[in-house]
């Protein structure tokens, strides 16, 4: 079974982004970029399925700038076998990415696609579900457990009220939640090995996909800032403030 893992290059989760003063966006020049954390979890899961003998090949796919090659190398250092970059300078919105991934799926014919549940830059939480719809495949989003046995795929999902377990037909899209696994650190030898793994580059035009954005960002602003309030000396003072000043209890 072949597994495809879409990986997005995003601002590292430790960076607190700054909004540009002209409202045109956030400043990402000279900011550390990394693989979207949920996608690391996705790569890890796919690699574990390969190590368990369930999957035969893990292909990482990234859509975006030429620098996404670094993200693909990071996926290969975790254990993906090869990478595909769909290179584009256009701002790629989730629907466009889903269409590109569909085109790649049509070529690669994977049995499973494991996406992150959400990219931590756009916080969209859309791409995996959109891809599943375009493929007319089932989906299991926000997965905290994936089990394949006797031709049955069972996925436990984190939902607002607790957990839900689904049985899905393959091929399918799974999206990862935080508790699915803890991604390994790539070792130096594996980082070196990753440099030699195959990486091919495609263009949206070759795939016949129109990637023009559907949403126009008119402006990006700072959210209202909360200022630090006051330090209270002890519990008695805290209770007094809550009762008599804030009047919330």
């Amino acid at each position: 079974m072949k597994i495809l893992v879409p990986v997005k290059r995003v601002v590292d989760y430790n960076v607190k982004v700054r909004v540009r003063s002209d409202g045109s966006g956030v400043d990402i020049a000279n900011v550390k970029m990394s693989m979207n954390p949920f996608d690391e979890i996705a790569v890890e899961e796919a690699v574990r399925l390969k190590e368990a003998g369930v999957a035969t090949e893990v292909v990482a796919v990234s859509c975006g700038l030429a620098q996404c090659q670094e993200t693909l190398r990071a996926a290969m250092a975790i254990g993906a076998d090869r990478g595909t970059l769909v290179e584009s300078d256009t701002e790629l919105q989730p629907l466009a990415v889903a269409k590109l991934l569909k085109a790649v799926c049509d070529k690669e014919q994977p049995q499973m696609v494991i996406c992150g549940k959400q990219a931590i830059d756009d916080d969209a939480n859309q791409t995996g579900q959109m891809l599943a719809a375009l493929m007319n495949w089932p989906q299991a989003t926000f997965a905290s457990k994936v089990a394949l046995a006797d031709g049955v795929t069972t996925v436990t999902r984190e939902i607002d009220g607790g957990l839900e377990t689904l049985e899905i037909r393959l091929p399918a899209v799974v999206t990862t939640d935080l508790r699915l696994n803890e991604p390994r650190y790539a070792t130096l030898p594996n980082i070196m090995k990753a440099k030699k793994k195959p990486l091919d580059i495609l263009k949206p035009e070759e795939l016949g996909v129109d990637v023009r954005p559907r949403l126009t960002t008119l402006k990006v602003t700072e959210p209202p800032q909360r200022s630090a309030g006051e330090r209270v000396a002890d519990v008695a003072q805290l209770v007094d403030k809550l009762k008599n000043v804030a009047k919330v209890i």
């Binding site: 909004v19 916080d123 949403l215 960002t217």
Partner: peptide, 13 residues
């Protein structure tokens, strides 16, 4: 966007 560190105003076509 960005964990609420920025607010985007977007128009849909």
């Amino acid at each position: 966007i960005y964990a609420g560190n920025a607010l985007a105003t977007v128009r849909s076509e």
